[in-house]
Amino acid sequence: MKIVVDRDACMGYANCVIEAPELFDIDEATDKAVALIEEPDESFREAAERAARVCPAVALRIEG
Protein backbone atom coordinates (compact mmCIF):
# COMPACT_ATOMS: atom_id res chain seq x y z
CA MET A 1 0.00 0.00 0.00
CA LYS A 2 1.18 3.51 -0.78
CA ILE A 3 -0.21 6.83 0.49
CA VAL A 4 -0.19 9.67 -2.02
CA VAL A 5 -0.83 13.24 -0.90
CA ASP A 6 -1.75 15.68 -3.67
CA ARG A 7 -0.07 18.73 -2.17
CA ASP A 8 -1.59 21.03 -4.80
CA ALA A 9 -5.10 19.93 -3.80
CA CYS A 10 -4.46 19.85 -0.03
CA MET A 11 -6.00 22.79 1.80
CA GLY A 12 -4.49 21.97 5.20
CA TYR A 13 -7.76 21.16 6.96
CA ALA A 14 -5.94 18.43 8.96
CA ASN A 15 -8.85 15.98 8.92
CA CYS A 16 -6.34 13.29 7.97
CA VAL A 17 -4.26 14.11 11.05
CA ILE A 18 -7.33 13.85 13.26
CA GLU A 19 -8.29 10.48 11.74
CA ALA A 20 -4.83 8.95 11.49
CA PRO A 21 -2.16 10.88 13.44
CA GLU A 22 0.17 7.91 13.11
CA LEU A 23 0.14 8.37 9.31
CA PHE A 24 -0.24 12.12 8.70
CA ASP A 25 0.99 15.47 9.93
CA ILE A 26 0.85 19.07 8.73
CA ASP A 27 4.04 20.60 7.36
CA GLU A 28 4.41 23.87 9.28
CA ALA A 29 6.21 25.56 6.39
CA THR A 30 3.47 24.90 3.83
CA ASP A 31 0.38 24.16 5.96
CA LYS A 32 -0.15 21.05 3.81
CA ALA A 33 -0.53 17.42 4.81
CA VAL A 34 2.41 15.06 4.65
CA ALA A 35 2.45 11.30 4.95
CA LEU A 36 4.63 10.24 7.87
CA ILE A 37 4.83 6.73 6.43
CA GLU A 38 4.48 6.68 2.63
CA GLU A 39 4.36 2.89 2.36
CA PRO A 40 2.78 1.58 5.57
CA ASP A 41 2.04 -2.09 6.10
CA GLU A 42 -1.47 -3.48 5.80
CA SER A 43 -2.20 -2.96 9.49
CA PHE A 44 -2.63 0.76 8.68
CA ARG A 45 -5.00 0.28 5.72
CA GLU A 46 -8.23 1.02 7.61
CA ALA A 47 -6.84 4.23 9.12
CA ALA A 48 -5.41 5.37 5.77
CA GLU A 49 -8.67 4.74 3.93
CA ARG A 50 -10.66 6.48 6.66
CA ALA A 51 -8.37 9.53 6.41
CA ALA A 52 -8.76 9.61 2.63
CA ARG A 53 -12.56 9.47 2.95
CA VAL A 54 -12.75 12.44 5.33
CA CYS A 55 -10.47 14.73 3.31
CA PRO A 56 -12.73 17.56 2.09
CA ALA A 57 -10.20 18.50 -0.60
CA VAL A 58 -9.95 14.90 -1.90
CA ALA A 59 -6.18 15.25 -1.67
CA LEU A 60 -5.38 11.74 -0.44
CA ARG A 61 -5.14 8.55 -2.47
CA ILE A 62 -4.36 5.03 -1.32
CA GLU A 63 -2.71 2.86 -3.96
CA GLY A 64 -2.24 -0.87 -3.87
Rank of each mutant, 00 (worst) to 15 (best):
R7A: 15
G64W: 01
R45K: 11
M1E: 11
A57L: 09
L36K: 12
A20G: 11
E22I: 06
D8E: 11
V54W: 14
V17L: 13
E49I: 02
F24L: 03
I18T: 14
A57P: 13
A57G: 04
V58G: 13
D6K: 03
A20Q: 06
D8Y: 03
E49Y: 03
V17N: 10
A14G: 01
D25N: 10
V4M: 09
V17K: 00
D31Y: 15
E28S: 15
I3R: 05
Y13G: 10
I3S: 12
A33I: 02
I3P: 08
A35M: 08
A14Q: 09
A9F: 07
S43P: 14
V4D: 08
D31L: 14
V17W: 13
A14I: 02
D6A: 05
I26P: 09
E19M: 04
A59R: 07
E38F: 15
P56L: 08
F44C: 10
A47R: 05
V4I: 13
D25W: 15
V4Y: 13
M11E: 04
V17Y: 13
R50C: 14
L23Y: 03
D25S: 15
D6R: 07
I18L: 11
A20K: 02
C55W: 11
A51S: 01
V58K: 13
I3D: 13
K32M: 02
T30V: 05
D41M: 06
F24C: 07
M1R: 01
A57E: 15
I62K: 02
R50V: 15
P40R: 01
E39Y: 09
F44N: 08
A33M: 02
C10A: 03
V58S: 15
